[in-house]
Structure formats: structure tokens, C-alpha cells
């Protein structure tokens, strides 16, 4: 029993070496397998107007990278970044928690107010939060960031201001992003994290 463990074991648990008790709540379902997607086009002519949108339209690349590593990195960062709760009242689990703790008023009142605010303000903020989180997560993983024109960016990225895209769409896009991230070194300017 935990109480009787030596102090060293308590620290070991804290350091995450016992994986089972702290397993994250995994999402159910397996996405369908997709055919290998094509390498996206990355060459375009930069104009000042296009350069002004690099805060929104960019891709990542790291030298000496493998496709598998890039896939793992992008998948982890996307998992951390997706499902922004800006203005939302939290997901279903939390709503249930609130109802249990504060009675029905705690859940419903919060949900209505938050849902209204979210419908008005949420979409752009959610997309912006996703971009901030991706830039930090991939940046800490050692990736460089490069600008892209919107129409080329649209070919292999998705925006989820108002709900999650279908899994098969996400899988293809994330795979293509990983192909780019582990492909030839871009010739364009590094933008910084």
C-alpha cells in the first residue's frame, strides 16, 4: 500500500515512472487508415501582403528529422493544442462535475452564459490559441517556423474555430505536415518561435 512505501518510491511515483495510475482519459474510436498523401507544394512568390499573414499561415521544419519523429511531434502538439476552451464552460465531464458540486444551477447557468459568449467571440480566439500553443510546443521541440501563402497553407492544414474536423481529414493533414517537417530544408526565411 502507498502509505508504507519508502520515500524514494513516493518520489518515483511523482516523477511519472508509474504510468498506469495516471493514464490520461483516452478518446475512444480508431480513425480509418488513409492512403499515403502527396507532398504539399511549398513554393510561392512572397509579397508584402502575404508576408503580413505569416502569424496565421506557417509550417514547421527541423533538420535531421525522420517522418516518424515528425509525426509523433506534430501529433503530440496538436493533442495539447486542440479543444481550446476559451469562453466555453468546459467539456461534458466538467459540466457534470459542476452540477454534482453546485446543483443544477452550477452547470446550466454556466453553460448558457458561456455558450452565448462563445458563439459571439469564440471562433477566432480558439484558432489564435491553437496557433500560439502549436508555435510554443513545436518551438520547444526544436522546429523552425516558415511562412506560406494562404492558398498553399489551406492544402494541408485545418482550422477548428467551431468544432473538430473529421478524423480522416485531420490524419491526412497532420501526416502532410509531418512530411514537410522532415523533408527538404526550406529555402525561405526562418520566422522564429
Amino acid at each position: 500500500m502507498m502509505r508504507y512505501y519508502a520515500r524514494g518510491a513516493m518520489v518515483a511515483l511523482a516523477l511519472g515512472w508509474v504510468a498506469a495510475p495516471v493514464a490520461a482519459q483516452e478518446q475512444g474510436g480508431t480513425p480509418p487508415s488513409a492512403p499515403v498523401p502527396s507532398m504539399p507544394r511549398l513554393d510561392f512568390v512572397e509579397t508584402p501582403e502575404i508576408a503580413a499573414t505569416y502569424d496565421k499561415y506557417f509550417y514547421f521544419h527541423r533538420d535531421a528529422n525522420t517522418l516518424d519523429e515528425a509525426k509523433a511531434d506534430i501529433t503530440e502538439c496538436d493533442a495539447l493544442s486542440s479543444g481550446s476552451s476559451i469562453y466555453l464552460g468546459g467539456d461534458q465531464m466538467l459540466q457534470t462535475q459542476m452540477i454534482v458540486q453546485y446543483g443544477l444551477a452550477g452547470g446550466v447557468g454556466g453553460a448558457i452564459g458561456a455558450a452565448a459568449a462563445d458563439a459571439i467571440f469564440g471562433s477566432a480566439q480558439r484558432r489564435a490559441q491553437y496557433r500560439v500553443n502549436m508555435r510554443n510546443c513545436m518551438g520547444w521541440k526544436g522546429y523552425q517556423r516558415y511562412g506560406l501563402s494562404k492558398d498553399l497553407w489551406d492544402n494541408f492544414h485545418f482550422e477548428e474555430g467551431n468544432g473538430r474536423k473529421k478524423e480522416e481529414v485531420r490524419l491526412v493533414a497532420l501526416t502532410q505536415q509531418a512530411m514537410v517537417a522532415s523533408g527538404p530544408k526550406p529555402a525561405t526565411k526562418e520566422l522564429g518561435q
Binding site: L15, G16, W17, A19, V22, A23, A24, Q25, E26, Q27, G28, G29, P31, P32, E76, D78, A79, L80, S82, G83, S85, D91, G163, R164, K165, K166, E167
Partner: peptide, 15 residues
């Protein structure tokens, strides 16, 4: 190095 846990999105997948 500390092993990474399995990171999953808080969103339900749309199959």
C-alpha cells in the same frame, strides 16, 4: 529524461 505520458486531445474524435 522523464518518459512522456500519452498526450491526447480533450476533444472527442469525429469519426
Amino acid at each position: 529524461e522523464l518518459p512522456d505520458p500519452l498526450i491526447t486531445s480533450r476533444q472527442k474524435p469525429k469519426l
